[in-house]
């Protein structure tokens, strides 16, 4: 069993958990992911690794409560155990040899962008972090990002913190100001990554994106996580999750990501009602 040794609520809908998983911690690298199951009937939930501690043998995950399964996960507390926890899966992000990188994170995607920024910083790379949230209550990992970034730009949709606007505005402004990046790494909602790519494409700045499609086994068996990249079918679990953003068919990925929208809404409402009843 995989014990939760730390739980912190980062904002009302985003939670951090540190999980005891020594085999995974020994190997984990930024950009890789794990799959967990809360209990015996649980879904296999893929989550990108937010941090790892090889000595303690722990993996940190940060998740947004978006559906029934993440709601269920969030009910657990320190000392509770997860049924299953497997990883590290996928190919680690390629960070070696980069001199100057813009790391763009959107919402809970910042949880995945952070370990990459941290690793780049540790390798001596100049890191510009551009992070965006809907409003000030949703901001996560601000201090952590600042510690590993040579430049930190905070954006919000409503202007309640940082600058008002989208991450693409900030990125565009930095590029226009003459910043020359070896690479841009964008992690966040599909729509954000799509527009980051549209921002960098005219400047021909290599842009890597981290894809998180629907998947089941995560080991290269089910094919549910397939994407079209450069006109070819790729599997996010074994070929990714990082891909060259210029090559990804985002519209297809957005459509496929909505496959179970109705089911998820229904399951979420059912789970909410159940917990409400228990609380009463």
């Amino acid at each position: 069993m995989y014990k939760i040794i730390k739980k912190v609520s980062l904002n009302p809908t985003v939670t951090l958990m540190e999980i005891e998983a020594p085999f995974v911690a020994k190997k984990a690298e930024p950009g890789q992911f794990i799959i967990l199951r809360v209990d015996e009937n649980g879904e296999r939930i893929p989550l990108t690794i937010a941090d790892y501690d090889r000595e303690k043998g722990t993996i940190t995950i940060i998740f947004q409560i978006v559906g029934a399964s993440t709601l269920h996960l969030n009910i657990l507390n320190e000392g509770d155990c997860l049924q299953d926890f497997v990883g590290p899966l996928g190919v680690p992000s390629h960070v070696e040899g980069l001199k100057k990188v813009a790391v763009v994170g959107g919402g809970v995607g910042c949880a995945i962008a952070y370990p990459i920024a941290k690793k780049l910083h540790a390798l001596g790379c100049e890191v510009h972090s551009i992070v965006g949230f809907r409003n000030k209550d949703l901001v996560i990992l601000e201090d952590e990002f600042k510690q590993v970034s040579d430049k930190y730009v905070l954006m919000s949709d409503d202007g309640s913190c940082g600058q008002k606007g989208l991450v693409t505005h900030a990125l565009q402004a930095l590029i226009a100001a003459g910043e020359q990046y070896d690479e841009v790494i964008a992690i966040g909602p599909l729509i954000m990554m799509k527009f980051v790519v549209e921002t960098t494409r005219p400047h021909n700045i290599k842009t890597m994106v981290s894809m998180n499609p629907i998947m089941i086994d995560g080991t290269g068996m089910c094919g549910g996580c397939r994407l079209t990249v450069g006109g070819k079918t790729k599997f996010a679990c074994v070929d990714g999750p990082d891909f060259d953003g210029f090559e990804v068919d985002f519209d297809e990925a957005i459509s496929r990501g909505r496959s179970y929208g109705d089911f998820e809404r229904h399951a979420y409402e059912k789970a909410c009602n159940l917990y409400k009843k228990e609380v009463q």
Binding site: V86, G87, L89
Partner: peptide, 9 residues
């Protein structure tokens, strides 16, 4: 279980 040979070990 939960051991992906090639990744976990």
């Amino acid at each position: 279980t939960n051991m992906v040979i090639g990744r976990t070990i």
